[in-house]
Design a protein around this nucleic acid. Structure first.
Lengths: 347, 347
DNA sequence: CTGAAAGCGCTTACAG
DNA sequence: CTGAAAGCGCTTACAG
């Protein structure tokens, strides 16, 4: 291997070749104004010819800029909420080159009055960017818009508020996730006929609605022998979810499947365990957490659809930093993959 | 937020507090020898009290060390091989703080004489680390061991050679992947009875064997009404794979499923398309590539099991760097997740 | 066993 | 519109 392959060009090389100073190279590199057109072209030419690629860590070392980001996350106790919070806290450490300090504000998501108050409390001048797991409820959109209008980049996390001015949404395509659930349900039930129950947290939360819609689409189109019952709302409360299952089993003797769109799985599993319907309805739920893993391994759950919260937290940071720098969106870096988990591919 | 939360301690702060020079702080930090016990303790104490965390990018900037890594990859033309090569080439750019130069050497995998010759050609002194997608064939193990004995870190990629001295294996758990395939096959076929055909590339390639074993395990245990046919070997050749399918359909009129363990899917799809068996056997394959995506969307394939080659390439680099630095293995950072893809969760 | 000083490749006031 | 110089937080010979 030629030695010169190992030493890549630095900005000094570029400056020398273009016959300018380091400061001018820096101006061209970072698109700062105040460089004569001709000079700019000379520098660009040198960059091109040397195959120069700026060293991001050196740049960040010199910048020493620290970003302060606020994350608004659900306060309600659930496996997913905890996991998300943990992932958000751990995310800055994975950023090698950028300095980020994050704070977390908890908000009650089901009660959107509480969420609204929390959002209203935020002082935009204190933050370089904000990530919110928000509901799509009245007033929330305006609160997000106010933050954006005050010059703070805002991204929605996990669940989107698409009509707002938030710059990005970081999370899975929830309609697609619902379709995946519908597909698995239909295929696992093969040609059996019967009813399928849906349990969501709240139809004010966008991701729940989208999953429901996706599920219905697929069942209607590809598995018309299945009857989808009206969605029941649990407020993401385990006890309520458990009662919903009891009622479903009682009212629909042909119940052969349950799609749990949101939280409350502990209650659902407990009811099924207690009532032992034969055969047990095929059960598809969201989000891997330790108890859900166990239930999957034990055969109490048939499939889990999961979003990678570590990746979401990481991408939220990357997006916020990109927004602070006015960088264009990198294609496909906001969407997170929809994971399907069976007993044997648990991570 | 207090201002001092934003400014974290630097090694100068540590040096001041401990009453030593920067060089000594560096020695303690990096476990270099030649520091009196008492001095070392003073420094450690200061690090602790200041909550000092070294800045990785500054360290790497100062080091300017460049790693030269060699990747031995399959030469045979296949969607997966191309994708893997592309991922390997792109991986260094994702490493913000480390400088890595990679080279790629192509080797014929099915013909292990050729692979062996390729491995024997490698001059250990030219490389800081080597990643190999190897077969588990005679002589290969010894060739890998020789490289390790010559002081070069070696990791296996995608397919392991567990009896060798390679330091790490980076890839999916292929037995688990086979189990996932078996599970999906069993569930999709529900209670239907019939034969299931398996097509592998070569039983000299470890990942193929492991997938086969995992598949059989699950079918035997959970879906005993399915009959698994003896594995056919295609040498990862599309034409051969297509012929195998024709023969299977001809000899087994009750063929209701096909598990394609490796490459050659184009041939399999073509044969099924031409012969149009009714009903079409449930088809499960590995590795998403553009033609496979299309077939999944068109309904010609029922499920795809995928490994994330970008992640594998990235982890291979991280592992090799860690090995060069004598860092301990980070738990779970070698294993890559097994992705299950249906029509609606394509990335 | 320990330290002073140069340097890694950029950015940032400041001066002109 | 452009440049000289200091500095970001570490590492590395070299000297003692």
């Amino acid at each position: 291997m030629a030695k010169n392959e190992l030493k890549s060009a630095t900005s000094i090389d570029v400056a020398d070749m273009a016959g300018v100073s380091l400061a001018t190279v820096d101006r061209v590199l970072n698109g700062r104004r105040g460089v004569r057109h001709e000079t700019r072209e000379r520098v660009k030419d040198a960059i091109e010819r040397l195959g120069f690629r700026p060293d991001a860590s050196a740049a960040n070392l010199a910048k020493r800029r620290t970003y302060r980001f606020l994350f608004v996350l659900p306060s309600r106790h659930s496996g997913f909420a905890e996991h998300l919070e943990q992932a958000v806290k751990a995310a800055p450490a994975a950023l090698d080159t950028e300095r980020v300090v994050i704070s977390i504000k908890k908000a009650e998501m089901i009660d959107h009055g509480a969420l609204l108050a929390t959002l209203r409390e935020i002082d935009p001048s204190e933050w370089d960017g904000i990530a919110v797991k928000a509901t799509d409820a009245p007033g929330i959109r305006e609160a997000l818009d106010d933050l954006v209008d005050n010059g703070v980049p805002v991204v929605t996390l996990v669940s989107d508020v698409p009509s707002s001015k938030r710059q990005r949404y970081i999370g899975i395509d929830n309609t697609a996730a619902g379709r995946v659930a519908g597909n698995l349900m239909g295929r696992f039930l093969h040609r059996l006929e019967g009813s399928v129950g849906l349990i969501a947290g709240s139809l004010m939360i966008r991701d729940h609605v989208e999953r429901w819609v996706g599920f219905e689409q697929v069942i209607k189109a590809d598995f018309p022998h299945l009857r989808v019952l009206p969605v029941a709302e649990s407020s993401d409360n385990c006890d309520v979810a458990g009662q919903i299952v009891e009622r479903m089993l009682d009212e629909h003797r042909d119940l052969i499947g349950i799609y749990s769109i949101s939280a409350g799985n502990k209650g659902i599993l407990a009811s099924l365990e207690r009532l032992k319907p034969q055969p047990r309805p095929t059960l598809i739920v969201h989000e891997l957490s330790p108890p859900i893993r166990r239930a999957l391994l034990d055969g109490a759950i048939d499939a889990v659809i999961n979003q990678d919260v570590e990746m979401e937290a990481h991408r939220a940071l990357r997006s916020l930093i990109a927004l602070c720098k006015n960088e264009p969106a990198l294609g496909g870096h906001d969407r997170v993959g929809i994971g399907i988990f069976l007993r044997d591919n648990l991570p």
